[in-house]
Simulated scan of single mutants.
Amino acid sequence: MAIKEIMKKPITIKQDDEIYDLIKLLRTHKISGVPVLDADNYLVGMVSESDVIRALVVQDSDINLIAPSPLDLVELPLKTIFKMDEYRKEINEALKTKVSEIMTTEVIYITLDSSISDAATIMADKKINRLPVVNNGVLEGIITRGDLMEELI
């Protein structure tokens, strides 16, 4: 069976959209990743929840909760309040990051004439959850592991 018989219409995002828009899109559609398109609607990347999480991780070596000194116990609540404000600002700035800055640009894809077996093999070998279906650089559809599972029953 050809992939074009089971592929779905993809939910996509533009490379110039912000992470904030991506999060809203993923939550609204209850999905974990989407293809990324350029202004001409060509496939230029893939982006997932993992990419968002990596972009939003805030690490701080200033807070050391292992065996705090007595002075730290007094200062810690004040430091924590100050740091929380800093974290909020950093997160708000990170949410403005363009999707193009966090997406995977080496996209693994299949073509319209590929088979379901081809898709399953690629997804298993490459350990990927979704596979764009492309025709001359233009995104035609998408197939997910869930789509493959549906075909088995």
Rank of each mutant, 00 (worst) to 15 (best):
T12C: 05
T12P: 08
T12L: 03
Q15L: 12
E18T: 14
E18D: 15
I19V: 09
I19H: 06
I19Q: 00
Y20W: 09
D21F: 02
D21I: 12
D21Y: 04
I23G: 03
L25G: 02
L26Y: 10
R27D: 11
T28Q: 13
T28Y: 14
H29W: 11
H29C: 10
H29L: 02
K30Y: 10
K30S: 14
K30W: 08
I31W: 06
I31M: 07
S32W: 07
G33V: 02
G33L: 05
G33Q: 02
V34E: 03
V34L: 00
P35L: 00
P35K: 01
P35H: 01
L37P: 06
L37D: 02
L37E: 00
D38Y: 10
D38Q: 05
D38F: 03
A39G: 11
A39D: 15
D40K: 10
D40Q: 10
L43Y: 00
S48W: 03
E49H: 06
E49C: 08
S50L: 09
V52E: 00
I53M: 12
I53N: 02
R54D: 12
A55W: 04
A55Q: 07
A55K: 04
L56R: 00
V57P: 06
Q59P: 10
Q59N: 10
Q59H: 07
D60P: 02
D60C: 05
D60S: 11
D60A: 11
S61A: 15
I63N: 06
I63Y: 04
N64W: 12
L65H: 05
A67Q: 12
A67G: 11
A67Y: 14
P68G: 07
P68V: 08
S69F: 08
P70I: 01
D72Y: 08
D72V: 02
V74R: 14
V74W: 13
E75H: 05
L76V: 03
P77C: 00
L78W: 14
K79N: 13
K79A: 08
T80V: 10
I81G: 05
K83R: 12
K83D: 04
M84V: 15
M84S: 13
M84Y: 13
E86W: 04
R88K: 12
K89Y: 13
K89M: 08
E90F: 05
I91F: 00
E93G: 07
E93T: 10
L95G: 01
V99H: 01
E101Q: 11
E101A: 05
I102G: 00
I102V: 07
M103S: 03
M103K: 01
T105M: 15
T105A: 07
V107L: 07
I108H: 07
Y109S: 10
Y109M: 15
Y109I: 10
Y109W: 09
I110N: 05
T111S: 08
T111D: 13
T111P: 01
L112V: 11
S114M: 04
S114L: 06
S117R: 15
S117F: 13
A119S: 04
A120Q: 09
I122A: 02
I122G: 01
A124T: 15
A124W: 12
A124K: 14
K126R: 15
K126L: 13
K127Y: 14
K127R: 14
K127L: 09
I128G: 03
I128Y: 04
I128P: 04
R130G: 06
R130P: 07
R130V: 01
R130Q: 09
L131I: 11
V133I: 08
V134A: 02
V134G: 01
V134Y: 01
N135I: 15
N136E: 14
N136K: 14
G137R: 04
G137A: 07
